[in-house]
Design a protein around this nucleic acid. Structure first.
Lengths: 194, 194
DNA sequence: ATGCCTTCGAATAAATTGGTCGATAATTCG
DNA sequence: CGAATTATCGACCAATTTATTCGAAGGCAT
C-alpha cells in the first residue's frame, strides 16, 4: 500500500470499529487482520503490539472528541435548542468512548501509560463546562421537554448504548456517575471503586 | 431463589443481553456468572452447557419475534403510516437477532439442532409477507419519504446496528441480502456462502 | 543479481475457557 | 433436632485460543 503512515490509519479505523464494539480483551489480532484482508503477522510490521494499536485508536478517538469539545464549549450560552444538538453529538462520542473505558477495565490501568498522555492534552475547565451541560441536560430532562421525538429517541438510544458495555460490571450505578467515571478515566486517568 | 424455572428465566434474559452484544463465542461463562452474581459452576445446576443457555435464549427471542410477526401480518393492507411503525418494531427485533445470527456463524451450524426446532415453528407464508414489507419499505425508501425525523433516524440506527456485527465478515454485502441471510438462517436453517 | 520493503505461514509459550467434582451451605421436612 | 434434599461454590483440568516471533519468500527498483 502507498504509504506506511497511510496504512497505519487504515488499521486504526478498522481496528477501532472492532475495539469499540468488543473492547480490548475480546478483540483478537485475527479479527483485526481479517478486517484488513491481511495476514496476522503482517500487522506487526506496522504496530509493535495489540496494545500499540489500541493506544493509537484511543488517541485518535480522543482527538476527535476534543475537536467536538472546543465547538461545544462555545454553545454554552446558546439557546437551549442549539445546546441540545451539541449535547447529542457529544453523547454519541461518549458512547463510543465508553466502550474503550470498558476495555481499559479489562486490564490494569497502570499498564496504559498513554492515558497520561491524553490527560495532559485536555484542559480541565473545558471538561467541567461540558460536564455541566450534560448533567443539566439530563437532570432537567431538557431532551424530553423539547418537542422532538427525534432527539428524545436519540438520547435514549445513546444512553442505552452507554449502559450496554457496563451493565454487568456493577448494578445500580446511575448515568451521572458513569459519565463521571468515564470522564475521569479518559481525561484525568483516575479510576475509583474498582 | 424462589423457583428453578423462575431462575432459568433470569439466566436467559441476563445471558441474552451478553450474547446479543458479543455473540456466542465471545461470551464466556464467567461473564454470565458475574452478571448473575453467582459462581460459574452454579449455572450448571440449571443448564447443562453454554450451548444449552444459548439455545434457550434464541428460542425465547424467536418467540418474541413471532408474536410481533402475527401482529405485523395484519398490517399489510393498512395505510402506509401504520405499516411504517410495524416495520420499525420489526427491524428492532431483527437487529437483535442479527447478533445471534452472527453468533451462529461462529460455530458450525450443524451443531445447533435447535435451529431445526425454530424452523418448524414458523410458517413460510407469514415470513414471505414480512419480507415483502421490509424490502418494499427499504427499496421505496418509505422511511425517508414519511415526514418524520424520528422514524428516519430510528431506521438508520437500526440498519447500522445490523451492519456492526457483520461488517468485517464480508465486504460489499447489501442490506437486502443480509436480511435474506438472517431470515434464512433463523427460520429455515439455511446457510449459504460460508 | 543484489538489496530492500512487505507479506506470510508455521510454531510456540502463555493465557483463557467450558466443564467437572467434591465439599459445604442453606433449606425443607419428618 | 437431624437427616435428606436443594443450591452454591472454589479448585482444578484438559483442550483450545491467542499474542507474538521468526525465517522464508514474493515483489520491485536499482
Amino acid at each position: 500500500m502507498i504509504n506506511k503512515e497511510e496504512f497505519r490509519k487504515k488499521v486504526i479505523t478498522s481496528a477501532g470499529q472492532i475495539f469499540s464494539h468488543y473492547g480490548f480483551k475480546k478483540t483478537t489480532m485475527d479479527e483485526i487482520a481479517k478486517a484488513l484482508n491481511m495476514g496476522k503477522s503482517s500487522i506487526y510490521y506496522y504496530f509493535e503490539s495489540k496494545e500499540g494499536i489500541f493506544e493509537a485508536v484511543v488517541l485518535h478517538e480522543a482527538n476527535l472528541l476534543r475537536n467536538e469539545l472546543t465547538t461545544a464549549i462555545k454553545s454554552v450560552d446558546s439557546p437551549i435548542d442549539k445546546m441540545r444538538n451539541y449535547v447529542f453529538v457529544r453523547m454519541k462520542s461518549f458512547e463510543k468512548l465508553s466502550n474503550y473505558y470498558n476495555a481499559i477495565f479489562d486490564k490494569n490501568l497502570d499498564h496504559f501509560d498513554f492515558i497520561e498522555t491524553i490527560r495532559e492534552k485536555y484542559d480541565r475547565e473545558e471538561l467541567a463546562i461540558l460536564r455541566l451541560i450534560i448533567y443539566h441536560g439530563a437532570r432537567t430532562k431538557v431532551f424530553n421537554v423539547v418537542n422532538s421525538e427525534y432527539t428524545a429517541m436519540a438520547i435514549q438510544t445513546t444512553l442505552k448504548g452507554l449502559e450496554v458495555p457496563l451493565f454487568w460490571k456493577k448494578k445500580e450505578v446511575n448515568i451521572e456517575k458513569r459519565l463521571d467515571a468515564i470522564l475521569d478515566v479518559l481525561f484525568y486517568g483516575i479510576v475509583k471503586n474498582r
